[in-house]
Computed example of a mutant assay.
Amino acid sequence: MIKAIALDDEPPALEILQSFCNRIDCVDLQKTFTKSEDALKYLKKYPVDLLFLDINMPAISGIDFCKNLPHKIMVIFTTAYSEYAVEGFTLSATDYLLKPISFIRFEQAVERAFAQWKSQNQNQEQQYLFIRADYSLIKILISDILYIEGLDDYLKIHIQNQKTIVARMTMKSLLEKLPETEFIRVHRSFIVSISKIEKVRNKTIYINQQEIPVSASYETTFFALLNKE
């Protein structure tokens, strides 16, 4: 699912975007902003996939805001002024919506963004994750993850030749971020990297000199996967 935010100095415009996003399954509008400085602070801390961006704002134009984005992000411009369209597309905008925005036109723009997002993810094959830990966003190469250990509301991400990272998140939320062909849950408290498994004896997995149990709830799926390899 696409993670998105919206920036527009007019609250009614944001309410329309929110209502439209609620009707589409592939986009999650996580936050809306009326002030550009607040949106920029959020983006620096929480990378998202898509930005709905008004162009004609009092403090800074959407065009200038787009040029100062802290990381690469898809942008769908929203504005009441058609003369900005050409400049918007020169910034490689995903789409350009003219107010008042119809739901059909909005849906087309989001579908275009989703196709672009899906293509990028397939090409990159999710090579890394950003995990919030120690008051920072820490970049982790997926290929370096050995296994994940769950401890109440915390996770310990065990990484090859690196310090273990402790993050406050759930097993389910992290598993959703990992490539399903490369990671599998084998226990209520363990997710393992399939490629890092050194051996399996009875119902115990060995990874990097660690013994990881396979619980009854997950053993059928796990051993069926091993038999396919």
Rank of each mutant, 00 (worst) to 15 (best):
Y206M: 14
S143Y: 02
S195I: 12
S136R: 15
Q209S: 14
Q162T: 06
S173V: 10
L137Y: 09
S195D: 05
V214I: 15
S143C: 09
I191C: 03
I138D: 04
I148H: 02
L174H: 00
S173C: 06
K139H: 08
K139S: 08
R168W: 05
I148M: 00
A216P: 06
D152F: 03
I207F: 08
A167C: 11
I148W: 02
N161V: 12
N208W: 08
R185A: 08
I138E: 12
A167N: 05
R188P: 02
R185C: 08
D134K: 08
I165P: 00
G150L: 03
H158T: 09
S143K: 15
T204A: 04
E182V: 07
M171C: 01
N161F: 03
L178S: 07
R188A: 09
K172Y: 00
K196D: 08
M169R: 11
M169F: 05
I142R: 10
P213C: 09
I145M: 04
R185F: 03
I142S: 03
I142A: 05
I194T: 07
D153A: 09
L178M: 07
D134T: 03
L174Y: 01
S173G: 10
R188G: 11
V186C: 04
I191L: 06
L155K: 09
L146R: 04
A216Y: 11
S193K: 10
F183R: 01
I142M: 06
T204N: 11
L175Y: 00
F190I: 03
I194E: 01
T204G: 07
I212G: 04
I159Q: 05
N208V: 07
N202E: 15
T170N: 10
I191E: 01
Q162A: 11
A167P: 11
V166M: 12
K163F: 07
H187P: 09
D144Q: 11
S173D: 14
I184C: 01
L155S: 03
E176N: 13
D144Y: 01
S193C: 11
F183G: 02
A167F: 01
L151W: 08
I145D: 00
I184E: 00
H187K: 07
G150Q: 08
L175M: 08
K139I: 02
K163N: 15
I138T: 13
I148A: 06
D153T: 15
L137M: 14
Q209I: 06
I131S: 05
I207A: 10
E219I: 08
I131R: 03
I194D: 01
G150C: 07
A167G: 09
V214P: 06
R188Q: 14
N208K: 07
I205S: 09
S136V: 11
